[in-house]
Simulated assay, not measured.
Amino acid sequence: MGDDNQAQRRSIFLHALRSALIDLAVLLRFFSRLPLPPLPFEDDPHGRPDFARAAPMLPLAGMILHAIGAIVLLMMLGSGLSPLIAAILAVLALTWSTGAFHEDGLADTADGIGGGGNRDDKLAIMRDSRIGTYGTVALVFSLMLRVALLASLVERSGAVAAALVLVASGGLSRVAALWLAVALAPAHSDGAAFATGAPDMRRYMLTAIIAIVLAALLVTPMLGQAPFIAGLAGNLMAGRAAAQLAKRHLGGQTGDIAGATQQAAEIAFFLAVTMLAG
């Protein structure tokens, strides 16, 4: 009887582990250009993630992607480059690895909300692949702020601390973006926001707790509690502000405004951390 129970527990554990690894792989493929091969036990390696189920793996996926930028940052600083040049190359590597996935959403959102006269016009502009003035300005300021804040944090707190903050921001900013899917219905019935689903509040809270704990373990040993708490507050406020903006202008959420929210939350986290970092 004891052997049967042990075998059953092992089977349950292996099934949960396989499900978690599949969710992580699907999320990494969805958010990046990483050439991840299909897992041996994966049925649909090219499918979109189901956030109703896969949300708890989102913080880890975001941190893995931002670890690419952190590694480049440390390598460039180790080779003797200045913090500014190292930060530029780190953000470039991160943008390349994601295929400018979130940057595209930021540009489309800025063009739609800035240039559209009503809800339908704004949504139509956001679906247009061409970039306009509002989108260009938003992209320029986003990239400049991310580079400048990363370089400033290197100068204030050192290379390792800046790299760890960069990794932490990858999980927290994506959880902030996921809040839109929880708080608002999709603005389209055929877009990515509709197809990928949304977690319920309980699962979202679990996801947020995972992201906060992982980020705290990375940031607080290097910088202390105050910068982390300030960064977390900035991250959360960016998510809530984006949800209000989406509701007011679009009557719902889209994949584009989720991407814009990730960018805003990352910047808000870095800005608050950098202001209080020693």
Score class of each variant (00 low, 15 high):
Met1Gln: 12
Asp4Cys: 03
Asp4His: 12
Gln6Asn: 11
Gln6Ile: 14
Gln8Tyr: 13
Ser11Asp: 12
Ile12Leu: 14
Phe13Arg: 14
Phe13Gln: 12
Leu17Asp: 03
Leu17Gly: 01
Arg18Met: 12
Arg18Phe: 07
Ser19Trp: 07
Ala20Ser: 12
Ile22Asp: 07
Asp23Thr: 05
Leu24Tyr: 02
Val26Lys: 13
Leu27Met: 10
Leu28Ser: 02
Phe30Gly: 11
Arg33Glu: 08
Leu36Trp: 12
Phe41Cys: 08
Glu42His: 08
Pro45Ser: 13
His46Trp: 12
Gly47Ser: 15
Arg48Lys: 15
Arg48Ile: 14
Phe51Val: 04
Ala54Leu: 06
Leu58Asn: 00
Ala61Gln: 11
Met63His: 00
Ile64Trp: 01
Gly69Met: 04
Gly69His: 05
Gly80Leu: 08
Ser82Val: 02
Ala86Gly: 00
Leu89Ser: 00
Leu92Val: 14
Ala93His: 03
Leu94Met: 06
Leu94Tyr: 06
Leu94Ile: 01
Ser97His: 02
Ser97Met: 05
Thr98Ala: 06
His102Pro: 10
Gly105His: 08
Ala107Thr: 12
Asp108Tyr: 12
Asp108Pro: 07
Asp111Thr: 09
Asp111Pro: 06
Ile113His: 02
Gly114Trp: 02
Gly115Asn: 03
Gly117Gln: 15
Asp120Glu: 15
Asp120Trp: 07
Asp121Arg: 14
Lys122His: 01
Lys122Met: 15
Leu123Ile: 10
Ala124Phe: 01
Ala124Met: 11
Met126Gly: 06
Arg127Met: 09
Asp128Ser: 11
Thr136Trp: 05
Phe141Tyr: 15
Phe141His: 14
Phe141Leu: 15
Leu145Glu: 09
Arg146Trp: 10
Val147Met: 11
Ala148His: 13
Ala148Tyr: 10
Ala151Gly: 15
Val154Arg: 01
Glu155Thr: 15
Glu155Ala: 15
Ala162Trp: 07
Leu164Tyr: 14
Leu166Gly: 05
Val167Leu: 02
Gly171Glu: 02
Gly171Tyr: 05
Ser173Gly: 10
Ala176Leu: 04
Ala177Asp: 04
Trp179Thr: 03
Trp179Glu: 02
Leu180Arg: 07
Ala181Tyr: 08
Val182Ala: 05
Ala183Trp: 00
Ala183Tyr: 10
Leu184Asp: 05
Ala187Thr: 09
Ala193Glu: 08
Ala193Pro: 10
Ala193Phe: 12
Thr196Glu: 07
Gly197Asp: 05
Gly197Val: 02
Arg203Ile: 05
Met205Asn: 00
Met205Cys: 14
Ile209Arg: 03
Ala215Tyr: 13
Ala216Ile: 01
Leu218Gln: 06
Leu218Asp: 03
Thr220Phe: 02
Thr220His: 04
Pro221Phe: 04
Met222His: 07
Leu223Phe: 01
Gln225Phe: 14
Ile229Ser: 03
Gly231Cys: 09
Leu232Met: 13
Ala233Ile: 15
Ala233Val: 15
Gly234Trp: 04
Gly234Ala: 10
Leu236Asp: 03
Met237Lys: 00
Ala238His: 11
Ala238Gln: 02
Arg240Leu: 14
Ala243Ser: 14
Gln244Thr: 13
Leu250Tyr: 00
Gly251Ile: 03
Gln253Cys: 13
Thr254Trp: 06
Ile257Asn: 10
Gly259Tyr: 13
Gly259Trp: 12
Gln263Glu: 15
Ala265His: 06
Ala265Met: 10
Ala268Asn: 04
Met275Pro: 00
